[in-house]
Design a protein around this nucleic acid. Structure first.
Length: 288
DNA sequence: GGGCAGGTCTAAG
DNA sequence: CTTAGACCTGCC
């Protein structure tokens, strides 16, 4: 690999494994304990977290400032947000545990499409589908000598490919949903831009008009694709958390401007307690 | 082998 | 408005 790299002092509230093990992103893989690699937009990066610094490989200062700093949401002060949760005991404890999470600023279309794929599905298969989809319909953007990396395909390409081709990627019953989303977005190139101008509730209602998009997928799309930190995805885990820790109803934080961040803390906290990890190290490291 | 996976649609009360 | 079933597939 070429040796272009850039490093920064490790930001507060930044933990690479929490960021990629909280289920918000399907395009990064763990290559060792503190290193992840993957693709965002049309860029490949590999990141190693050390004790007090972060090293970004295959990028330089200019691209870091113009792209990755924003992708990792480095301009948001998460410690202020965590402080604001102080009056909620469960949430504060979760934040103590998961406070290294940052809400990635992913591409809008990619987030929409990915979370449609995620419904009633498991992480390894979601990643497999997205990989096949990108290899076939995305652009090759990087080759490290071992493997080629592809961008996420745009909506128009998938729409042109057609529903049966989307099904052929082994997307199952989601093929028609992905196709409807691709049709909606490519027939109106301003669709996602229009969504971004609406308040979160109206934006959600607009997204839900797409077949296969319900409350959960819409909220994930808005949280991860539109940086709507007030979007609050409710899945089976969050439902359980709400019943267990908030039997008398959610606190204001879970409806407020940072509800989505609160959700991520609670989600990660509860899943770790139940020993559910997303990005396991490759098998070979254990066997030999 | 069968249950289950960060849901949503559809059909029926 | 609420609630079962069904749904592709392939991991665990």
């Amino acid at each position: 690999m070429n040796c272009k790299s850039f490093e920064i002092k490790k930001p507060e509230n930044f933990d690479i494994s929490q960021i990629f093990d909280c289920g918000q992103c399907f395009r990064f893989d763990r290559v060792d304990e503190n290193t992840y690699e993957g693709v965002a937009s049309d860029r490949y990066v590999k990141i190693t977290q050390k004790r007090d610094k972060l090293v970004f490989y295959n990028t330089d200062e200019k691209e870091f400032q113009n792209f990755w700093a924003d992708f990792f949401d480095l301009k948001t002060d998460y410690s202020e947000i965590i402080k604001s949760f102080a009056d909620d005991k469960t949430l504060s404890e979760a934040a103590k545990f998961a406070g290294g999470i940052r809400i990635l600023r992913q591409e809008k279309w990619e987030a929409l499409c990915s979370f449609i794929i995620s419904q009633n599905n498991n992480i390894p298969r979601i990643k497999g589908i997205i990989n096949r989809m990108s290899e076939k319909y995305g652009k090759e953007i990087f080759d490290d000598g071992k493997r080629k990396y592809y961008s996420f395909p745009d909506a128009k390409t998938l729409y042109k490919a057609g529903e049966s081709e989307i099904f052929a990627l082994r997307t199952g019953f989601r093929a028609k949903y992905i196709y409807d989303a691709a049709r909606t977005v490519s027939q109106n190139p301003r669709f996602l831009c229009e969504v971004s101008k609406l308040d979160t509730k109206s934006a959600s209602e607009k997204l839900i008009k797409i077949k296969g998009v319900g409350n959960k997928v819409a909220a994930c799309t808005l949280l991860y694709g539109f940086a709507r930190h007030d979007a609050f995805p409710v899945d089976v885990w969050v439902k359980r958390i709400l019943e267990k820790y908030y039997p008398d109803g959610a606190t204001a934080h879970l409806c407020g401007e940072n509800a989505g961040i609160a959700q991520q803390y609670l989600f990660y906290y509860e899943r770790c307690k139940n020993n559910v990890y997303i990005n396991k190290l490759p098998e070979k490291n254990k066997e030999k």
